[in-house]
């Protein structure tokens, strides 16, 4: 099942992973040659059971993990030590637990952290922070401490912290986990309104269907399937083979996707 990116004619893809294999220092091999291309402006869901290697793959995208076989390039720039600063500006990772992501005493300082580390100061920084908070609808909370926000608000601020770096690609690890239905929908609206490339790691199959026209299945360290999300979700043997289960009563074929 091969699928070409949305804009095949468009210059460099946002993300190109090729032949990526990785074993943890304790010898456990988590990735066995992953190939994945995400075109500019695409929204792709990365599906896979627990322990499939999704987080391991994500941590390779900005060079937190490395040293295995294969290459990763972000908008043409290879992920290598001499480019880490630029790579980390280009790849915005939203981690699963917003309490890990939001480590500054106020929302504003937290959103400013990334751009400030990249050297932005003064009015320009101020403007960047305001714009990022606006995009997630959290501008009124700039001076609040993160731990006084609701979980859904914290997740939105976490998204703002990486948007403030104007990334080439936004990577979200389980963005819908622990969200109540309203917060889940608000986040979906925000993600849909952004015009950046998105790679979304998730177990939440309806969420993937709602947001991502294309999905890839990572299973046992390799890409097992790649195609339109609806086609993959309707492929029952495939889903079962990779421990991907739809919620009770959910029929992916009945959903009209844009």
């Amino acid at each position: 099942m091969n699928h070409t990116p949305a804009n095949p004619g468009d210059a460099t893809p946002s993300l190109e992973v090729s032949g990526l294999a990785y074993a943890y220092p304790d010898g456990h091999q988590a990735l066995f040659g992953v190939d994945l291309t995400v075109g500019k402006g695409e929204r792709v869901a990365l599906l896979g059971p627990n322990g499939a290697g999704k987080t391991t793959l994500v941590l390779h995208l900005n060079g937190i993990l490395g040293g295995g076989v294969g290459t990763v390039t972000v908008a043409g720039l290879p992920v290598a030590k001499q480019h880490y600063a630029e790579i980390r500006r280009r790849v915005g990772i939203v981690f699963q637990d917003p309490d890990d992501q939001l480590f500054m005493p106020t929302v504003r300082e937290d959103v400013a952290f990334g751009p400030a580390a990249a050297g932005l100061r003064g009015a320009e920084l101020e403007e960047r922070v305001r714009a990022a908070l606006d995009r997630v609808g959290m501008a009124d909370f700039a001076d609040r401490p993160p731990h006084h926000l609701s979980f859904g608000q914290r997740r939105r601020v976490a998204v703002a912290t990486v948007l403030a770096m104007e990334p080439e690609i936004l990577v979200l690890d389980e963005p819908s986990s622990n969200l109540d239905p309203a917060s889940r929908r608000e986040l979906a609206d925000i993600l849909r309104s952004l015009d950046v490339t998105v790679l979304m790691v998730t177990h939440d199959l309806p969420y993937a269907l709602e947001l991502c026209p294309r999905s890839v299945v990572l299973s046992e360290g390799v890409i097992a399937a790649d195609g339109p999300t609806q086609d993959l979700l309707c492929d029952e043997p495939l889903m079962r083979a990779h421990r991907l289960e739809l919620p009770f009563g959910f029929d992916p074929a009945s959903v009209a996707v844009a």
Partner: peptide, 12 residues
């Protein structure tokens, strides 16, 4: 995990 998140945003 916090350290990881900080490094990911350019902390040096």
């Amino acid at each position: 995990r916090v350290h990881l998140a900080m490094v990911s945003r350019g902390y040096t």
